[in-house]
Amino acid sequence: MLSRLAESLYWIGRYIERADDTARIVDSYVHRMVEDPFNDEDATCRSLYSILGIEFEEEETLTTSDTLQQIVYDAENPNSIAGSLSGAFENARRSRDFISSEMWVALNSTRNRLPQMENTARRLGPSQYLLYVRERAALLAGLTDATLSHDDGWHFLVLGRSIERIDMTARLLRGRVLSEDNAPDWLAFLRACGAMEAFMRSTSEIHDANGVAAFLLLDRLFPRSVLFSLNLADRCLYEIQPSSQRIAMADVARQSLAGARGRLEFIDSTELLVHLPELLEMLEETCVSINNAVTDRFFRHEDFVQWSREGGL
């Protein structure tokens, strides 16, 4: 398929997942930000900014409404929810001949309705808005799986979705690592991932912090866990370019994936909290290196060449 198209699909996957996960993370913070009277507003906002990797003014005191504006509604910011959806939309426009028209209509109408949702959210609080974003992301994910052929294009989209999901789950966990006091508690994280029941059912042990972290990082069956997403990303890369090489791995992206997976699989899961900071950093680097490897390998395009006339024609 066309490199430009593959790139657009990859980014549709990433942006929709980013909107979804950001909505989930913000949702887990909303209780503290909006409703908790004992909460240190400034510190909570800082914690949210830093886990999402969005820049903020160091000197000023941060307020909840400014934070929500930047992280949720600001369409100019590619890391905000509105910005991610608009990024997905722009990429969908560029690949409109490839994605199914149902996907297109879903994405287009999501974007059309967003300003109206925003107005309501400003009056009534962000919950409905966040719920809407999560629902639309689920709809889009469903349409992706049900209305696209599972060919290279679909694999690129799912690859993007998986990479973003690894990145965002790692960021979510970083909230606890960075500042325990101002981040939501572990169970709120589980709820944010929609993983509460899945987690409860997965273990009969005492529900401690270590167990939650292990579930979100290492569970093999839960689709939002890091290990699950690593495996899925690896399968997509394999399908895009099956390799029959016997020794070593030529694909740089798959190499980094294998490294990260090995690191996770061999960790002592009872001691997970101790290794957490280092693991999360490793995961973040892995996402960057996979992204770069995929871009170099598949999305090759040249810069615009501008021709000019030479003198003395």
Partner: peptide, 15 residues
């Protein structure tokens, strides 16, 4: 930008 010409043939860049 998806197309390129080489030796009077046109190609498109794919994955």
């Amino acid at each position: 930008r998806d197309l390129l010409c080489r030796s009077n043939h046109v190609y498109m860049r794919t994955t």
